[in-house]
Write a protein that binds this DNA or RNA. Sequence first.
DNA 1: AATTCAATGTTGCGCACGCAACATTATAAA
DNA 2: TTTATAATGTTGCGTGCGCAACATTGAATT
Lengths: 221, 221
Amino acid sequence: MDALFLSNTSLFRGITPEEVTSMLGCLLAEEKCYQKDEVIYRAGDTVPKIGIVITGSVSIEHDDLWGNKSVLDKIGHGQVFAETYACAPGEPLMVSAVAAESTVVLFLNVAKTLQPCSSACGHHGKLIRNLLTISAQKNLTLSRRIFHTSAKSIRGRLLSYLSFQATREGRREFDIPFNRQQLADYLSVDRSALSNELGKMQREGLITVHRNHFCIKSDLE
Amino acid sequence: MDALFLSNTSLFRGITPEEVTSMLGCLLAEEKCYQKDEVIYRAGDTVPKIGIVITGSVSIEHDDLWGNKSVLDKIGHGQVFAETYACAPGEPLMVSAVAAESTVVLFLNVAKTLQPCSSACGHHGKLIRNLLTISAQKNLTLSRRIFHTSAKSIRGRLLSYLSFQATREGRREFDIPFNRQQLADYLSVDRSALSNELGKMQREGLITVHRNHFCIKSDLE
DNA sequence: AATTCAATGTTGCGCACGCAACATTATAAA
DNA sequence: TTTATAATGTTGCGTGCGCAACATTGAATT
């Protein structure tokens, strides 16, 4: 296992490669390979282990009541998944994790680390602090999405999203990390209706758009 | 400060009152009183301290771009707020915290505890594990709301929400913790339209409803 | 430059739902 | 029981937007 690589991930940040190596034992680390489209975790499962993507990528998916599949997230190289469920033992997964390509995953039993008196290995503390940071960040990401989708109109959602991006970037001109379809999914609206609304807003002089590049003209009131 | 009370909160769970007392020093604990409607934290602030409600209650609010105020959460006796921001230092608040009544808040500087080598006090580990649990639970709460609001129709949202509640309760008959207006807000739909849709579903024999008591008749699909 | 395919934009239809206004039923107080 | 107030249900209008179908633009390949 590439301890140097692991020590650069958000989960093991601040832990030296040597320490990482010694920790993998406590964490009952085991590596598994998956072919494209192979299911790693299925919605409804309860999972004890966190996954960390070594090579390839993992798609986090949701099947609604009518069987429509939607991709919620794409977990890449060095990133972690299922950490929320590993930290809330017994909670059934709302999503499935599927290999988006040929993928290698390292599973870690952090549940063990969460027990009261297992601080035998001194670096578990750092690991848990990292987990807390990851969890808090994810919280913010989820909260933001809720904010940006709580407006009832498409324009309202766009204004919420775009003004946040502008504030974050610190300027009125910026790129977004989504194409149209992805932005539509993120805001839970129809893609063509979204394009339509963006066109209107441009004609009204509120913004200029080209592909994923945006410029906010006025103060968006 | 009532250490016995604190040791029964989710934050200090598993820590004895005596240990709690000794920890309050490390955490730079300070108590503050607020009158009704007094602002505790304002959206845009960056906060270093977590808040824990001793008496009274705190309302978590959001003002959208048009100045519409919406209540996102109500933090009661023994519960914690601003923990996400305290764990993701420097992140500006998206919400405001306002005293919903005459309220006493205990502020704790957990940021200090998150630093690498401050494990001087041995119980900080337990505190952080508790924080991680709180954060993971909140994550699940936020994720669920996203799921239940991602459907485009009111019926879709209701089915998603109700079938989750039924699964969680383990039976087809259950109460929900919302009145109509609160449910409408939670699902981001109009209250009257929601009542309307519930009526339709009842007439179609899908469910029976009375106030906040629901019974799911068929398999909902 | 020519070809191909994906991404984005445009248009029109139909309906679900926001919204307002009112009716009805619960809950509590007098 | 009556009265008052909040919670819920009902109705109708107007429209924003989902949806499908097609047009246009952009990017990649040969």
